[in-house]
Every structure is written in structure tokens, then in C-alpha cells.
């Protein structure tokens, strides 16, 4: 197991000339990945794009939607496209933290404790219905997500890179669930909704999924090492002071607006910048522009915010509030 620098917020202070992002590599990998995924997830290019963005940015993804729209399919598709270790955890109320992180078992032969890694020890972890697990188990998962390491019985085990958790949850069926607290949602870089497919896409879906799942035919198009290199390259995408200022302005405004009870955390700003870098790279640019930030502000910020009671009464979601914020906050350098 190796420790990998994910490039988290490290380019800001560096010199610029030496760190030109390898756009060719990024573009190549992205093309192949998105091609593979689109063959399974039809009619949802935006969702696929955001998923790849989060992967390249080294973040985790929360997929929240009603049952049956393909949440798990999306997660499995991404997992299968990469030649890497994949684990899937079906969260249930009786799932124990040790099932996730691993456990030390006394080896009778060796007469010592041996560590049996849990489900989290993989490059891609698909967590199905994460809100069905007990808060204790959720905490175990979320802690390791952020720190990229697991501590069991005083021993710290580093998770291998790349490491992406794709968790799904169902917002409708709330009985017997433990909704993720906002503080823990903060660990996910982005939350996406699948949404229902268009009628044409749904027709295609009925046809293609009739006999066998296209997932079965999917072969890996890249590997863990390449993804690691891409994540490193993305970190070298240039974010100008103006763009960084824009992100700070947005985050600051979310804390001062009366529409929200809880604004965005500093980590939210960090995640937004990283996601924007990845997105810019996907767009073939080696510098971030405010448009990238605007595209990702909804997925990256909305799930972290808590609406004020007025906002709830007006039946407005935090995503609507983020749209308002984007409309209000001037794009720097301000016109006047």
C-alpha cells in the first residue's frame, strides 16, 4: 500500500511554468472513460461528465435519487471501466463498522492478531443505500473517506490510491433510515441526481437491457495508475486569483444569505476549486474560468447547505438557493 499525494490544494503557491497540466493524457482517459460509461448509462451525458469530473478531482460522489433510475448502475459502470479493485457494500441497519473498516482477528496458529481489511480497502467503493446503515457505521466509512486511512486497534492502514467512494441514497423512503448529517455530507465532493431518462432513452434502455445487461459486456478502459496520473495532472490546472476570489465570494455569500441556515464550509470551497480544475481539464483547458465554477457550484455546494425555515416554507431547495447565489455574486474582476 502506498501513500499518494492527491494534489489537494497544492498548486496554488507553486511556480507555474513547470506545472503545465498534461491535457493530452487527461483528454485521452476522459474520452475512453466517458465512451465506456455512455454505452451503459444512456441519455445522461451530464451525469457521466460530473462523475468523471469527481473521479479526476479525487473526490467522492453521492448519488441521490428515487429507486430504479440507475444509481447503482452508474457506480458499477464507473467501477467496471477502471481496471482496479472494486468493493460493493450493501448498507443495512445491522452492518457493523468493522465490516467496513476491517477487523483484527486472533490467529490461533500464529498466536497473534491479524488484520482482516474491510470493504473499504479498494480503489472504488460502491456504497449502496448508505442511509440505511447505523450512524456508527456511517461514521466509520466517512472518517476513512476523508482521511484516506483506517485505524484499527491503534494501527493505521493507508488506503491505496485512487480511492473513490460512490454512495447512493434514496431520499423518498425515509422509514428505518438514518439520513446523513450535513457535517458528514460535507465529505462528499459532489452530489448528483440521476433524474428520469428521456422517453427515447428509456425506449433504448428497454431494448438494450432486455436480454442481458450491457454492463456485462463492459471491459476496463483504464487502470488505477493512469487515474492516479490524471489526478496529479488535474492538480496542475491553473486557477487564477480572480477565480479563487470568485469561489471565496460564493462561499462567503452562502454564509451571509438569509436563505440558508448553514453556509458552505471552507472544505466546500476547496472541493469546488478541485472539481472546477478537473472540469476545466475535461473541457480541454489548462486554466479554470468562472463558467467551470458555475457549472459545478450546484452539485458541489447544494448538499452541504441547510435551508432556513423561510426557504423551506417557500418549498425551495438548496439547489435553488445556489442558483440565486450564482446570479447575485459578481464574477471577478467586477465590472465596476
Amino acid at each position: 500500500m502506498t501513500t499518494t499525494d492527491t494534489g489537494l490544494g497544492t498548486t496554488a503557491g507553486r511556480g507555474t511554468t513547470a506545472d503545465v497540466a498534461d491535457l493530452g493524457l487527461i483528454h485521452d482517459v476522459a474520452d475512453r472513460l466517458m465512451g465506456a460509461m455512455t454505452s451503459v448509462i444512456e441519455g445522461k451525458p451530464d451525469v457521466v461528465r460530473t462523475t468523471v469530473t469527481v473521479l479526476f478531482a479525487g473526490g467522492h460522489l453521492l448519488i441521490e435519487d428515487v429507486p430504479g433510475v440507475g444509481k447503482t448502475m452508474l457506480a458499477k459502470t464507473l467501477a467496471k471501466s477502471i481496471d482496479a479493485t472494486v468493493r460493493r457494500i450493501q448498507f443495512t441497519p445491522d452492518l457493523l463498522p468493522s465490516d467496513v473498516t476491517g477487523v483484527s482477528i486472533f490467529n490461533q496458529d500464529a498466536r497473534r492478531f491479524e488484520f482482516r481489511p474491510g470493504a473499504i480497502f479498494a480503489n472504488v467503493v460502491v456504497g449502496d443505500e448508505i442511509n440505511r446503515a447505523s450512524p456508527k457505521t456511517q461514521s466509520a466509512l466517512l472518517e476513512s473517506m476523508e482521511e484516506r486511512q483506517v485505524t484499527v486497534d491503534g494501527t493505521t492502514y493507508t488506503l491505496q490510491a485512487p480511492f473513490i467512494v460512490m454512495a447512493t441514497q434514496n431520499p423518498i423512503e425515509m422509514e428505518g433510515t438514518y439520513p446523513l448529517p450535513e457535517a458528514q455530507r460535507d465529505r462528499f465532493m459532489a452530489r448528483i441526481s440521476m433524474g428520469y431518462p428521456s422517453s427515447g432513452a428509456e425506449l433504448d434502455l428497454l431494448e438494450s437491457h432486455g436480454a442481458s445487461s450491457p454492463l456485462d459486456a463492459l471491459t476496463p478502459v483504464t487502470d488505477a495508475d493512469t487515474i492516479n496520473r490524471v489526478v496529479q495532472a488535474v492538480a496542475h490546472v491553473h486557477a487564477s486569483p480572480a477565480v479563487r476570489q470568485y469561489i471565496v465570494d460564493l462561499v462567503a455569500r452562502s454564509r451571509s444569505t438569509s436563505a440558508l441556515r448553514l453556509g458552505a464550509s471552507p472544505r466546500a470551497g476547496l472541493h469546488l476549486l478541485r472539481a472546477a480544475r478537473a472540469y476545466a481539464a475535461l473541457e480541454g483547458r489548462d486554466h479554470v474560468i468562472p463558467d467551470d465554477v458555475q457549472v459545478l457550484a450546484g452539485p458541489v455546494l447544494a448538499h452541504r447547505l441547510m435551508p432556513s425555515s423561510e426557504t423551506q416554507l417557500a418549498r425551495r431547495t438548496t439547489a435553488d438557493v445556489v442558483t440565486d447565489l450564482l446570479r447575485q455574486v459578481p464574477v471577478p474582476p467586477a465590472a465596476r
Partner: peptide
């Protein structure tokens, strides 16, 4: 650019807050 935006603003093409260059 500021010349252009203020001139076009005077002609009725205002630049609202929060729009990016591309918009």
C-alpha cells in the same frame, strides 16, 4: 472591456451581476 460594457450598458445591454464572460 469596461469601456465596452459601460457603453453597451448605456445602450440598454446591461451586464447583470453573476454572469460570466461567455454568458
Amino acid at each position: 472591456w469596461q469601456d465596452l460594457t459601460s457603453h453597451l450598458g448605456d445602450l440598454g445591454l446591461t451586464a447583470p451581476d453573476g454572469v460570466t464572460l461567455r454568458q
